[in-house]
Simulated assay, not measured.
Amino acid sequence: MNPDLADLNAFVAVARARGFRQAAHKAGASASTLSAAVRRLEAALGVRLLHRTTRSVTPTEAGARLLERLAPALGEVAAALQAVDALRDGVSGTLRLNVPVSAARLVLPMILPGFLAAYPDVRVEIVVEDGFVDALAAGCDAGIRYDERLEQDMIAVPIGPRLQRFATAAAPAYLDRHGRPAHPRDLLGHACILGRFASGRLTAPWEFERDGAVVRIEPKARLTVGVGGGMDCAVDAAIAGVGVLHLFEDWLRPHLASGVLEPVLADWWQPFSGPFLYHPSRRLVPPPLRAFIDYLRAS
């Protein structure tokens, strides 16, 4: 039994995409070519790897086990080949990052232009989602998350500002009508704007800190939006006077500076450590990712 490497890659592509057409579109190949490759692999292994229907393609138990072990191994092969290419031609290839909306909005714009200028042969693809994912299984080289959401077996590299704060704000007109809170617990009597993650968890409780005292409150949501793209809706709603918003200070800074939002309890805003670039602990790091890490450390 000596399966062809191209057939193994075809199986991984189809299993990840959950379909031959979808995989063919991503791989730049034909669906018939991928189908033939998977059939050859199944014949070589003597076991069915994929359940095929007119509507879906899903791994069998054997296929799922193979995918679990094979995807990281093929990633190592690709990284090894990229490393050779890097020595021959300089750093090139594609860097795929999985990042939350906050990083896409507040961190990467300060870093990517300089990195892309320094490495003109590297392409960058950004996948934006706020839930924690296995970056390698999702087809990405690395991700960006905060330390409380990092797995212990990941290698973490600081990226972006090392200290951030959550800011609380509302429209001046709203505060004129409902009063200006003097203590975090006063927010329990206010209309608040919350986010909801895809998991269903809310962006609550809100946490405040001053002189070593920490206060956590469960605000009453007047408006709830999906974390991610919905946060722009939350900011617009706060500006329109719907209620009080609790969000990254850097996100709200332009609106605070213009006066359309007014700081609330600014002396209670709690600092927290900045985000990290994380990637699996593996021996061979793809050259574009290695270049990105080196660029971060040199900046």
Rank of each mutant, 00 (worst) to 15 (best):
Arg165Met: 06
Leu194Tyr: 01
Leu163His: 14
Tyr119Asp: 01
Arg96Glu: 02
Thr203Lys: 04
Ala27Tyr: 09
Ile293Lys: 00
Gly93Arg: 02
His190Thr: 08
Ala64Ser: 15
Asp89Lys: 12
Ala29Glu: 08
Pro280Phe: 01
Leu175Gly: 11
Gly229Met: 00
Val77Ala: 11
Cys192Ile: 01
Arg149Ser: 07
Tyr146Val: 08
Phe248Pro: 11
Gly212Asp: 05
Gln164Ser: 10
Gly241Thr: 06
Tyr119Gly: 03
Asp141His: 15
Cys233Glu: 07
Val47Gly: 07
Ala170Asn: 08
Ile126Glu: 02
Phe20Tyr: 15
Thr203Ser: 15
Trp268Ile: 11
Arg216Asn: 10
Arg180Tyr: 13
Phe166His: 15
Trp269Cys: 10
Pro254Leu: 06
Leu66Gln: 02
Leu87Cys: 10
Tyr278Asn: 00
Asp130Gln: 03
Ile111Leu: 13
Ala169Phe: 09
Tyr174Val: 10
Leu34Asp: 05
Asp89Cys: 09
Pro181Arg: 13
Ala204Asn: 03
Ser35Cys: 10
Leu5Tyr: 12
Leu108His: 06
Arg177Ala: 10
Phe20Asp: 03
Asp153Tyr: 01
Gly189His: 08
Val57Ala: 14
Gln164Ala: 13
Gly226Tyr: 11
Val215Tyr: 10
Ser281Pro: 03
Glu76Tyr: 12
Arg185Ala: 14
Leu187Gly: 05
Leu296Val: 00
Ala173Gln: 11
Ala103His: 01
Ala237Phe: 04
Ala167Gly: 12
Arg210Ser: 08
Arg18Gln: 11
Cys233Lys: 13
Pro109Ala: 03
Trp268Lys: 07
Leu202Arg: 13
Leu5Ala: 12
His190Cys: 04
His178Glu: 05
Val133Leu: 03
Asp121Ile: 04
Leu5Trp: 15
Gln22His: 14
Gly139Asn: 01
Val264Ile: 13
Ala118Ser: 09
Leu108Val: 09
Ile155Leu: 14
Pro72Gln: 07
Arg69Val: 13
Ser258Met: 04
Ala64Tyr: 14
Ala135Gly: 07
Gly63Met: 07
Phe272Asp: 00
Ala80Ser: 10
Ala31Arg: 14
Ala182Gly: 15
Leu252Tyr: 02
Ser102Gly: 02
Ala257Lys: 15
Leu74Ser: 08
Gly228Glu: 04
Ala167Glu: 02
Pro205Met: 03
Val244Asp: 06
Ile155Cys: 03
Arg180Pro: 00
Ala238His: 04
Pro288Thr: 03
Leu49Trp: 08
Gly63Phe: 14
Ala83His: 12
Pro254His: 06
Leu277Lys: 00
Asp7Asn: 11
Val107His: 00
Ala135Asn: 06
Phe208Asn: 05
Leu289Glu: 03
Ala137Trp: 03
Ser102His: 01
Gly90Leu: 02
Tyr295Arg: 06
Phe20Ser: 09
Leu81Arg: 15
